Simulated assay, not measured.
Amino acid sequence: MTSLGALGTIAGGMMAGVAEGLSDGRARGTGALILPGLVALGVGVPLTIGGAIRYRQWRAWRQRNPIAAAPVAGRSAHGSWVVGVSLRF
Protein backbone atom coordinates (compact mmCIF):
# COMPACT_ATOMS: atom_id res chain seq x y z
CA MET A 1 0.00 0.00 0.00
CA THR A 2 2.79 2.40 0.87
CA SER A 3 4.87 1.64 -2.20
CA LEU A 4 1.85 1.96 -4.50
CA GLY A 5 0.96 5.26 -2.85
CA ALA A 6 4.51 6.58 -3.17
CA LEU A 7 4.57 5.59 -6.84
CA GLY A 8 1.25 7.36 -7.47
CA THR A 9 2.41 10.46 -5.61
CA ILE A 10 5.67 10.68 -7.56
CA ALA A 11 4.06 9.94 -10.94
CA GLY A 12 1.23 12.38 -10.30
CA GLY A 13 3.58 15.13 -9.23
CA MET A 14 5.77 14.59 -12.26
CA MET A 15 2.86 14.57 -14.72
CA ALA A 16 1.27 17.66 -13.21
CA GLY A 17 4.65 19.43 -13.06
CA VAL A 18 5.50 18.61 -16.67
CA ALA A 19 2.07 19.76 -17.80
CA GLU A 20 2.42 22.99 -15.83
CA GLY A 21 5.82 23.63 -17.40
CA LEU A 22 4.43 23.05 -20.89
CA SER A 23 1.46 25.38 -20.47
CA ASP A 24 3.23 28.41 -21.96
CA GLY A 25 1.00 28.30 -25.02
CA ARG A 26 3.36 26.46 -27.35
CA ALA A 27 2.38 22.93 -26.34
CA ARG A 28 -1.02 21.50 -27.11
CA GLY A 29 -2.76 18.86 -25.05
CA THR A 30 -1.24 19.69 -21.69
CA GLY A 31 -4.64 19.07 -20.12
CA ALA A 32 -4.16 15.43 -21.00
CA LEU A 33 -1.31 15.35 -18.46
CA ILE A 34 -2.76 17.62 -15.79
CA LEU A 35 -5.92 15.62 -15.05
CA PRO A 36 -4.27 12.15 -14.74
CA GLY A 37 -1.43 13.74 -12.80
CA LEU A 38 -3.77 15.29 -10.26
CA VAL A 39 -5.77 12.06 -9.98
CA ALA A 40 -2.61 10.03 -9.38
CA LEU A 41 -1.43 12.59 -6.84
CA GLY A 42 -4.83 12.60 -5.11
CA VAL A 43 -4.83 8.81 -4.86
CA GLY A 44 -1.15 8.42 -4.04
CA VAL A 45 -1.01 10.69 -1.00
CA PRO A 46 -3.77 8.90 0.99
CA LEU A 47 -2.34 5.49 0.05
CA THR A 48 1.10 6.53 1.31
CA ILE A 49 -0.31 7.84 4.59
CA GLY A 50 -2.54 4.79 5.07
CA GLY A 51 0.33 2.43 4.38
CA ALA A 52 2.58 4.21 6.88
CA ILE A 53 -0.12 3.99 9.55
CA ARG A 54 -0.72 0.29 8.91
CA TYR A 55 3.01 -0.42 8.94
CA ARG A 56 3.40 1.35 12.30
CA GLN A 57 0.48 -0.66 13.74
CA TRP A 58 1.96 -3.90 12.44
CA ARG A 59 5.35 -3.15 13.99
CA ALA A 60 3.69 -2.44 17.35
CA TRP A 61 1.70 -5.68 17.10
CA ARG A 62 4.84 -7.64 16.25
CA GLN A 63 6.62 -6.29 19.31
CA ARG A 64 3.68 -7.30 21.54
CA ASN A 65 3.59 -10.82 20.03
CA PRO A 66 7.19 -12.06 20.00
CA ILE A 67 6.51 -15.63 18.78
CA ALA A 68 6.31 -15.73 15.02
CA ALA A 69 6.81 -18.08 12.12
CA ALA A 70 7.99 -16.75 8.80
CA PRO A 71 8.71 -18.43 5.48
CA VAL A 72 12.36 -18.37 4.47
CA ALA A 73 14.30 -19.30 1.37
CA GLY A 74 18.04 -19.54 1.05
CA ARG A 75 21.00 -21.39 -0.39
CA SER A 76 22.68 -24.42 1.13
CA ALA A 77 26.44 -24.97 1.27
CA HIS A 78 26.17 -27.04 -1.91
CA GLY A 79 24.34 -24.30 -3.81
CA SER A 80 20.84 -25.76 -3.85
CA TRP A 81 17.79 -23.76 -2.83
CA VAL A 82 16.32 -24.46 0.61
CA VAL A 83 12.77 -23.47 1.56
CA GLY A 84 11.48 -23.67 5.11
CA VAL A 85 9.91 -21.93 8.10
CA SER A 86 11.80 -19.74 10.55
CA LEU A 87 10.55 -19.67 14.14
CA ARG A 88 11.29 -16.60 16.24
CA PHE A 89 10.80 -16.77 20.02
Rank of each mutant, 00 (worst) to 15 (best):
M1Y: 11
S3W: 10
L4I: 14
L4F: 14
G5W: 00
A6D: 12
A6P: 09
L7S: 12
L7V: 13
L7R: 12
G8M: 04
I10T: 14
I10R: 10
I10A: 14
A11W: 06
G12E: 03
G12N: 02
G13I: 11
G13E: 10
M14R: 06
M15V: 07
M15D: 05
M15N: 07
M15W: 01
A16H: 03
A16L: 00
A16I: 00
A19N: 11
A19G: 13
A19L: 13
A19V: 15
E20L: 15
L22H: 04
S23N: 15
S23V: 08
D24Q: 11
A27I: 04
R28K: 02
G31M: 12
G31H: 11
A32M: 04
A32V: 01
L33F: 02
L33P: 00
I34K: 15
I34E: 15
P36W: 08
G37E: 10
L38E: 14
L38M: 15
A40G: 10
L41N: 03
P46Q: 02
P46R: 01
L47H: 09
T48P: 01
T48C: 10
I49V: 04
A52K: 06
A52T: 14
I53S: 10
I53R: 13
R54G: 00
R54H: 04
R56A: 15
R56K: 14
Q57T: 02
R59C: 08
A60T: 06
W61G: 06
W61Q: 08
Q63R: 11
A69P: 00
A70H: 01
A70I: 00
A70L: 01
P71Y: 04
V72C: 11
V72G: 05
V72H: 07
G74L: 07
S76Y: 00
S76N: 02
A77I: 01
A77P: 06
A77T: 01
A77Y: 02
G79P: 06
G79H: 09
S80R: 13
W81E: 03
V83Q: 04
V83K: 05
G84L: 00
V85A: 05
V85G: 05
V85K: 00
S86P: 00
S86A: 03
L87C: 00
